[in-house]
Simulated scan of single mutants.
Amino acid sequence: MYVRGLELVDFRSYQRVVVELGPGPCVLVGPNGVGKTNLVEAMAYVATLESHRVATDAPLVRFGTPRAVVRCAVVHDERELLIELSIEPGKANKARLGRSAVTRTRDILGALRLVLFAPEDLTLIRGDPSERRRYLDELLVARQPRFAGVRSDYDRVLKQRNALLRSAYLARKTGGTRGGDLSTLNVWDVHLAEHGARLVRARLDLVDALAPHVAKAYAAVSASRSDARIAYSSSYTQSENLEEALLAALAESRLQEIERGVTLVGPHRDELTLTLGAMPAKGYASHGESWSYALALRLAAYDLLRDDGVEPVLILDDVFAELDAGRRERLAELVGGASQVIVTCAVEDDVPSTLRGMRFEVGGGEVRRV
Rank of each mutant, 00 (worst) to 15 (best):
H195K: 10
C345M: 07
L124Q: 03
A346M: 02
I258A: 10
G309T: 07
R132V: 02
L122W: 01
K173V: 07
A223V: 02
R67W: 14
V351P: 14
P145Y: 09
R106C: 02
F63M: 08
G33Y: 02
L124E: 15
D137E: 11
T174M: 14
D324P: 06
S224M: 04
R106L: 04
L272G: 12
V61L: 10
D208A: 13
D349H: 09
P267C: 07
R133D: 03
G22H: 08
T177C: 06
L112T: 05
R126V: 08
G64H: 11
V370F: 14
L316T: 02
T103K: 14
L297Y: 04
L242I: 06
V221L: 11
D153E: 13
K216E: 00
G176I: 12
D137P: 14
L81H: 03
A142K: 10
L109P: 03
T184N: 10
L295F: 06
D350Q: 14
S226C: 08
H52T: 09
A325C: 10
V207N: 01
D128Q: 15
V157G: 07
R356T: 06
A285T: 00
R356Q: 12
E138Q: 13
G64F: 10
L314G: 12
A211C: 04
A294G: 11
Y14A: 15
R161S: 09
V18Y: 07
I258F: 05
L170R: 00
E252N: 09
A58Y: 14
T65P: 05
L334F: 13
N162V: 10
S353H: 09
A231W: 05
L299H: 03
S292K: 08
S224A: 09
L334H: 10
R166A: 12
S290D: 00
P280L: 06
V17C: 11
D57C: 04
G196V: 08
G283W: 02
